[in-house]
Design a protein around this nucleic acid. Structure first.
Lengths: 188, 188
DNA sequence: CGACCCCATGTCAGCCGCTGACATGCCAGG
DNA sequence: CCTGGCATGTCAGCGGCTGACATGGGGTCG
């Protein structure tokens, strides 16, 4: 992170990273598949956490709610790390190659969630769609949590985003052409 | 495509691609940012199509319906290209690097859609969430269209996926813990 | 009609990411 | 004390990707 911050992502060579860590370039590549991966350490663990959360949800829980519930449960992982998350996001936002990786991790999360839902008996187009919605909610919530001046909880942001999503979907149900569309979504 | 099919993606060198096209490696890189990009030719055009579609939708149309409507309108682009699309998907499915790029294109599409929605006055968390839902629907629909033995229209698949999504979201609204959850989603 | 310019392409050299093959050294268990 | 395994290092090399400069062909303008 230090190096990436100092000289930018492109400006940093793997040899330098390795050196600063007191290692060889070769060793770096034994731990990380590539230069980007080092910024996504722990994504796998997070994914497992979510998957387990879904598996353990009470069987009466609705699929989408099970997903967002499990996502809320990751909150302790991020608390305390807001500052770090912020730095990381800015770095990623500045480099397409990093966005690719980020978005890929989210896709992988979505597919793991879909699998977990199937494990609960949810059928197929539904499982994937639900997973996708859950991830969308999380992504938005995370973004807003990162730069929320009022420092509200990640969970609150997740709940808010979820509510918004439900509203949008519901609006689309009633009218294929009703002017009642936009209603929630207060800015800022 | 031929080369990638013959010797795999990794096994193909840019020099070879360029040669087969009667060009220099250097020239290849003047047209494509990298080795992967050549498989995503036209993604930009598609994105524009969708954005325009949204902008032109009647103002009474609900956001989500405007999005899926615009997506349906891309159907002519894909018709006739099913075989090609299939090959492409298998190739992508086999290589993580290609999935990254694919998923990135979808993310970019989502963010363009969100912008288009904002242009219609949709507020912010709603715009992004709607865009994300639209892309999710499209992704699923596309997948199913590609290997639909009954050769149904892309539009049909989009409509089906959209219906399913609405059902899932609606189910989650009524009960935070109602056992009524799963209901749609017939397999196969 | 020739001078000129622009743009597409080619040439060349070089950096750096990433990999395979092999060597070395430390630590644990018998 | 030997031995086998595992983490790390060394080395050489491929190939993606880039910057700088050269070349040529087609169109424009004086």
């Amino acid at each position: 992170m230090d190096l990436y911050a100092e000289r930018g992502f492109d400006g940093t060579t793997v040899a330098e990273i390795a050196a600063r860590a007191g290692l060889t370039e070769r060793t770096f590549f034994r731990y990380f598949a590539d230069k980007r991966e080092v910024l996504f350490w722990g994504a796998g663990a997070l994914q497992n956490l979510v998957v387990e959360g879904i598996a353990q949800a009470s069987p009466e829980t609705t699929p989408l709610n099970a997903v967002t519930g499990a996502l809320e449960a990751t909150e302790p992982v991020f608390e305390e790390r807001r500052q770090f998350a912020r730095q990381r996001q800015t770095l990623i936002a500045a480099h397409a190659e990093l966005q690719e990786r980020e978005v890929m991790k989210l896709a992988s999360l979505a597919s793991a969630i879909a699998a977990a839902l199937r494990g609960r008996g949810v059928g197929e187009p539904a499982a994937s769609l639900t997973a996708e919605m859950g991830v969308a909610v999380f992504r938005i919530a995370f973004e807003r949590w990162i730069d929320d001046a009022r420092r509200r909880d990640l969970r609150e942001h997740i709940r808010a985003a979820l509510a918004e999503l439900k509203a949008v979907a519901a609006a689309a149900v009633t009218g294929s052409s009703t002017p009642r569309a936009r209603k929630a979504s207060r800015p800022k």
